[in-house]
Design a protein around this nucleic acid. Structure first.
Lengths: 191, 191
DNA sequence: CTTACTGTACCGGCTGGACGGTATTGTCAA
DNA sequence: TTGACAATACCGTCCAGCCGGTACAGTAAG
């Protein structure tokens, strides 16, 4: 059997991800990726004809992954108000619990050229639009989004400001904010 | 007069910052920085004996800058509850309005080695500690912090999800959340 | 002369990527 | 069934160019 372990592309993507973490996002070299993925540089360049394409794929991979998880979770909350905001919270909780490696592949892409963030931009734009459209209190929903994004960036940069327990507590608090859903009336405090 | 425009270090830092934005955070080369800063490579390496030192300085520069602004703003809010959280909001508003360039120097440092984020880590840890200590509702304060950090990361990655007006509105909403400051009474939680 | 700094020249090493080759699998007419 | 041809997936080598860093010579001020 030739050393084809069921999908070179995936193996390459994973190797790149792991390597970016090890050598630093800006020091990712094709040689190293090829070696790590268990194929030759020629083989790598067959799958991704240029480094830019690899980076692109790295970002796209990450976006589709997290988007899929998000949509599943949203559907689980279907019917409730602010389903998407709740899903945002849930998915982050799950990601945290998984202790899955931080997506430093994305950092590698940014290092090469911040323009590679375009898919992320699009995805977030879409989410923000839905968030605003389907919420009784769009601003609050956005704040939830931003807070989750804040925690996410902490994770991305490996700044562990909050313990896992704390993060979870904060997420719960966010969830409570969303559920209470006071219709943005100023001044009135106690329900 | 030799082309010493009053402080080579600063000129170098600014040149590096600007270049990182232009060529991508991971493609910052010493030659280019030197040229841009208007001196020779030898001169550059006299001021920063190694690229790592330059990156370090880039991060430190950024941290001290934003920290200074933050402390000033906090003192302006002195006395009020949650002074720091309010300061966080204000400073971000100001940064936004300034339209100052995004700190891609920091991205360059990360590209080289995420470990360079240590000063950022320390700074944020300190802020989080104060935030928790001096607030009647620490969790809410942390959420404010995270939301601001979320917007900040949007800016860092040049993902302009929210217009300036929207950002400001969201910040105001955050400020209102802080002011209302319901003392986190868990009494009414209805599970 | 010393201090503080700038400028030039250069080197070894690594990098992206082009290229030609090869083994395996697929397709299809005879 | 077979033989001809082509597509797929991959390998190994080579190279021009760039990068960080060193070495060293210069210069202006005190």
């Amino acid at each position: 059997m030739p050393p084809v372990a069921r999908n070179s592309r995936t193996r390459i993507l994973e190797a790149a991800e792991a390597l970016a973490r090890e050598v630093g996002p800006g020091n990712l070299s094709l040689d190293a990726v090829a070696q790590r993925a268990g194929l030759s540089k020629g083989g790598l360049l067959y799958n991704f004809p240029t480094k830019a394409k690899l980076m692109e794929a790295l970002v796209e991979h990450h976006v589709t992954r997290s988007r899929k998880a998000l949509l599943v979770s949203r559907d689980a909350h279907a019917g409730k108000p602010n389903a998407l905001a709740r899903a945002l919270i849930d998915v982050f909780k799950i990601e945290c619990a998984e202790k899955g490696p931080r997506p430093s592949g994305v950092l590698a892409a940014i290092a090469e050229n911040p323009g590679f963030l375009e898919p992320v931009r699009r995805h977030q734009q879409q989410m923000a639009a839905e968030l605003k459209a389907l919420s009784d209190d769009p601003d609050l929903a956005c704040i939830v989004f931003l807070a989750v994004e804040g925690l996410r960036s902490q994770r991305l940069f490996e700044i562990d400001l909050f313990s896992e327990a704390e993060s979870e507590r904060l997420m719960d608090r966010l969830a409570r904010l969303v559920e209470e859903q006071r219709p943005a009336g100023p001044g009135v405090t106690a329900p």
